[in-house]
Amino acid sequence: MTTLTHLDRLEAESIHILREVAASMQNPVMMYSIGKDSSVLLHLARKAFYPGPIPFPLLHVDTTWKFKEMIAFRDALNDDPQTELLVHINQEGVEQGIGPFTHGSAVHTDVMKTQGLKQALDKYKFDAAIGGARRDEEKSRAKERIFSFRSAQHRWDPKTQRPELWSLYNARIKPGESVRVFPISNWTELDIWQYIYQENIDLVPLYFAAERPVVERDGIMVMVDDGRLPLEPGEEPMMKKVRFRTLGCYPLTGAVESSASTVTEIIEEMLRTTTSEREGRAIDKDAPASMEMKKQEGYF
């Protein structure tokens, strides 16, 4: 008799959720951030609908400041007949020259990511956006529903979220309203890595340690991914063996020194590590409840 491991059960739950979204929403989309959680989500979606194609498109909201290797990895999806990839860039933001150095990380993230996402959802009239957020990432996410209800203005109100019982998801909405759906809510970072190892899932090479040019700022190592990074006087990029624990806009994503160049080495490093995943993200540092505020404003 087959006995299921914790990964088997997490996988089965996620597949169930993905099928519920596809079956009960009119026009769902899967947010594709190119990171490891997105790669796991994409793998789960392929499994959920095999042998058929994934019945919803993937959407990448491109802030124009992503690592080059991320974009190359993303664009390779265009060769896959089972997936449809949409890319959205906030053109108004581009025209205004919004960037992390000129406007600061808060404005950059709000305009290019949060506003860009809302634009894309409105443009394509998606009524469900599937995301790879996990409840273990951050305290305000621990209370997030799997089907997270959003008003017509894309706002999240922690007080109006619907109770979720058993695996019965209430997907009913009125015109203009939408849901965000988080199929891997119950996974932890370790589960993700164990699953990547077990299923041999392909990742952006940035997750693995390599010699990369970095500068150190405010205790965060920033990779010099292109010529747009303004160097301070006397600042000299150094080659260091680094990798990234999360991926985002390169100027806002801290690298960690590491020699882990395989999935097993990463897991080994993780088991020894004493710093949580979001530490490398500049976005959380502003205020204790900053993620909660961003969520209410419509950040994923």
Partner: peptide, 18 residues
């Protein structure tokens, strides 16, 4: 988790931990 809760010193919703 939520800021409102921290101010009131009570938990007001179901939270999931791992």
């Amino acid at each position: 988790g939520l800021a409102a809760e921290r101010e009131q010193g009570i938990t007001i919703d179901v939270a999931y931990r791992f």
